[in-house]
């Protein structure tokens, strides 16, 4: 039931993630952060099986950082996405596959957003959502998203989506974090 949204605007990518961390019928945390800075200009948002998620994204981050150290050349967002996809696709054929869905947001001159599911399907999209949230917000995004959104307009669109989710989702997800990935890197908005 975690919410994972990504919106690409003209100069940045927004990652909207729910703040609740629930286990069974209890909310354990209401300030959870589901976004990880992978390298300077790339962020990963993740959801899925608890345990698998952190283990997987930390593994990806560690290897992406290692690559940066060893080669004195950071992996591009596209490369990070391809790498994460390959790991998920390989994992799918193992005894216990990672059940992790991710969004890869980055900025290498231009903003870039990748949608990757646990099967290892990697697509570049202008806006993306994982899980149940997609049923509620994709229509809103289809209606309002344009190629030339400013940051303010992007945040306003994110607001529209969150409002819709608050209205329609059957559970309280304790609000959302909005991360902005732009040419200066990854930052938590507000």
């Amino acid at each position: 039931m975690d919410i994972l949204l990504g919106i690409r605007t003209q100069n940045e990518v927004l990652l909207i993630t729910s703040r609740s961390l629930a286990r069974g019928i209890s909310v354990l945390k209401s300030d959870d952060v589901k976004v990880l800075e992978c390298n300077k200009h790339t962020a990963l948002a993740f959801s899925g099986e608890p345990g698998d998620t952190t283990n997987f994204v930390e593994f990806i981050r560690a290897n992406v950082r290692l690559y940066g150290f060893q080669n004195k050349q950071e992996l591009t967002t596209h490369a990070v996405a391809s790498y994460a996809r390959k790991e998920l696709a390989t994992s799918l054929r193992s005894r216990k596959p990672y059940q992790v869905n991710i969004l890869v947001a980055g900025h290498n001159g231009t903003p870039e957003l990748h949608w990757i599911d646990y099967l290892g399907t990697n697509v570049t999209l202008p806006y993306a959502a994982h899980g149940y949230a997609s049923y509620y917000v994709l229509s809103t995004l289809d209606r309002w998203w344009t190629e030339t959104l400013t940051l303010e307009e992007g945040l306003e669109l994110a607001r529209k989506c969150i409002d819709e989710l608050e209205k329609r989702m059957p559970i309280d997800f304790k609000g959302c974090n909005i991360h902005v990935v732009d040419q200066n890197g990854v930052r938590l908005h507000e």
Partner: peptide
């Protein structure tokens, strides 16, 4: 077919 396999 299955998109992940299409890509692989």
């Amino acid at each position: 077919g299955l998109a992940t396999d299409v890509q692989t």
